[in-house]
């Protein structure tokens, strides 16, 4: 059985009267890249800070690497690397010195520093101080700094925030490479599902302080499947025709739209049947459901 790295049950955290996390529960197993998705303010960063011991939950249980009492969980945190919100770096120091500081914090040697800087494509920064780095460089260095302590579990909070498309791709590839080469387990958050879908293997949708849905990569792909978008004059009659054609995987959207998720090769027959039955077809198109639409649908977002 795959080892459970992190299991949380019924985590509650409030700030004043505002409940940020309201009985949140999830489980992350070794080797997963768990994508935590939620709109801004959903509680992603708060949850991650609770896992890291940077803030306290009002109630609920945390089990980390099998440890569940406060002292053991604190010990287990040594196996975690984190980059939460903004990259936590010393602007007056160079990349190497930032790495050395974290190596000293973790009580490990400096042997990995050169390799990690190469891995993050930062080997040529020499004496350049971090305050002069671009945001992308800082994000990469922040990840390198977390890796210096040889973590088994990496927590990354919106690591692509503020990056340009090239930077986003670079970070994504780095994460995949780390999982492939170092066998890390990763918890990564974002408010953009499309972006997470290209890196995560499991997904949890956080809304109003709770995980409202968990999906595997395969399930998510199904959600982003192709469909036939039909805009017609008579929905009721069209539904009858679809049933007669043994097409059952469809969804009625509003008063004049139907989405058909199966039998995509029957576009011509569907069109013919509808027209034959005096239904006006305004639009007939094959489309992909956007993940963002799916996310907004289930969170009821605007």
């Amino acid at each position: 059985m795959t080892e459970t790295i992190l299991r949380v049950n019924n985590i509650v955290k409030s700030y004043g009267k505002h409940k940020v996390l309201d009985g949140m529960s999830l489980e992350i197993k070794r080797g997963m890249i768990y994508g935590l998705i939620g709109i801004n303010g959903a509680g992603k960063s708060t949850f991650m800070r609770i896992i890291m011991g940077l803030t306290y939950a009002d109630s609920g249980n945390i089990e980390l690497f099998g440890a569940s009492d406060t002292k053991s969980v604190q010990e287990a945190r040594r196996k975690i690397g984190q980059s939460i919100e903004t990259p936590a770096l010393y602007p007056e120091l160079t990349a190497v010195d930032n790495m050395k500081v974290q190596a000293a914090n973790a009580g490990v040697g400096n042997v990995e520093i050169t390799h990690l800087l190469e891995l993050m494509n930062l080997q040529d920064t020499a004496k350049k101080k971090v305050k002069n780095f671009s945001l992308g460089m800082r994000q990469r260095l922040a990840i390198a700094v977390t890796l210096v302590s040889n973590p088994e579990f990496l927590i990354l909070d919106e690591p692509t925030n503020g990056l340009d498309p090239a930077g986003i791709i670079e970070i994504r590839e780095i994460i995949k490479k780390l999982v492939r080469e170092k066998g890390l387990t990763v918890l990564i958050s974002s408010h953009i599902l499309d972006e997470l879908s290209q890196v995560a293997t499991e997904y949890g949708i956080l809304h109003h302080g709770q995980i409202i849905q968990e999906l595997s990569k395969e399930e998510l792909l199904q959600k982003s499947q192709q469909y036939i978008e039909l805009k017609i004059s008579d929905v009721e009659k069209s539904v009858t025709i679809l049933d007669e054609m043994n097409i059952s995987d469809y969804e009625v959207i509003g008063t004049n739209e139907i989405r058909i998720y199966s039998d995509l090769d029957l576009v011509a027959q569907i069109n013919r049947q509808l027209v034959t039955n005096n239904i006006e077809v305004y639009q007939l198109d094959t489309k992909n459901q956007k993940l963002e639409d799916y996310f907004m649908n289930i969170t009821g977002g605007k």
Partner: peptide, 11 residues
């Protein structure tokens, strides 16, 4: 700088 997180998150 948020660097306090680097120390505290190591347990």
């Amino acid at each position: 700088n948020g660097t306090i997180r680097n120390s505290l998150s190591l347990g």
